[in-house]
């Protein structure tokens, strides 16, 4: 089966077994280019594991992954990022003892290709400062430019993470619970940001905040116990009795 025209990422029979336990069990996913696709489901459903498989941070037990028509099942995670699929992490992933602007610059630095030039002064990186400042401004972090990431409040860390990911200008973003643990104002800001950056990109995100999911996502896939339970737009999915049951039965948080 080849990826159809509009499909950017496809997973077939994606499976991950941890010592007899199937965290992800025969999942088929097809993400439309340019869409915002939400992956939801109760805790322990296998959403994060799915992300780890799709970006090859974990090797799948079985299955095939195609990105932009290319089989990436055997590719290394760094090379997948280089192809244009960049992930964020459920646990905030910043470089804690680098300043906000340095965090973003690490990503911008990728434009130079590899940075093995150990003999050159780091001053060459200053060419990225203005772009880094723009990206920080986009997520409302201008006044935190020189603050070490470790000192930022949680919501700001997530914003910094998004700015760092956007610095790569990836075709596709995988966001794992981008609004978890945020104040309502932060949630609103980040949701608006995701919608904005999703205008010309593909986004696959794990999200628990159903109001965020319902307002910004085009398609929703519901995962429970490692299997796809339902798929469709918010109306279809939210009325599906199996989904309602999984959420009540499995508890979500």
């Amino acid at each position: 089966m080849t990826a159809s025209e509009g499909t950017i990422l496809q997973a077939e029979d994606l499976t991950k077994e941890f010592k007899g336990f199937f965290a992800v069990d025969g999942v088929n996913l097809s993400i439309k280019r340019g869409s915002i696709h939400a992956l939801i489901g109760p805790n322990g459903a296998g959403k994060t594991t799915c992300f780890n498989l799709l970006t090859k941070f974990l090797p799948p037990t079985r299955g095939r992954i195609t990105f932009k028509g290319q089989d990436i099942t055997a590719m290394s995670p760094a090379d997948i990022a280089r192809l244009g699929m960049v992930r964020s992490f459920q646990i905030s992933a910043v470089f804690p003892h680098l300043s906000a602007i340095e965090n973003v610059r690490i990503a911008l630095q990728r434009q130079r290709g590899d940075s093995f030039d150990f003999w050159r002064s780091e001053r060459v990186l200053n060419e990225f400062n203005s772009r880094a400042a723009e990206l920080l401004a986009d997520v409302g972090l201008t006044e935190f430019s020189n603050v070490q990431a470790v000192e930022l409040p949680y919501g700001r860390k997530r914003a910094l993470e998004i700015a760092t990911t956007l610095a790569l200008d990836p075709e596709m973003l995988l966001l794992d619970e981008p609004t978890a643990g945020m104040t309502p104002e932060d949630v609103e800001r980040v949701a608006a940001l995701i919608k904005r950056i999703g205008a010309n990109r593909t986004i696959l995100m794990v999200e628990h905040n159903l109001s965020v999911v319902s307002t910004i996502s085009d398609t929703i896939t519901v995962l429970a116990r490692g299997k796809v339970l339902a798929e469709g737009n918010y109306e279809t999915v939210s009325k599906d009795p199996r989904v309602v049951e999984a959420y009540i039965g499995g508890g979500h948080g």
């Binding site: 970006t55 290394s76 990022a81 280089r82 960049v86 964020s88 992490f89 470089f95 690490i106 990728r110």
Partner: peptide, 12 residues
Amino acid sequence: ENEPRAISLGYR
């Protein structure tokens, strides 16, 4: 500081 993050940004 954070190796998985560096990998996810495309650094080998």
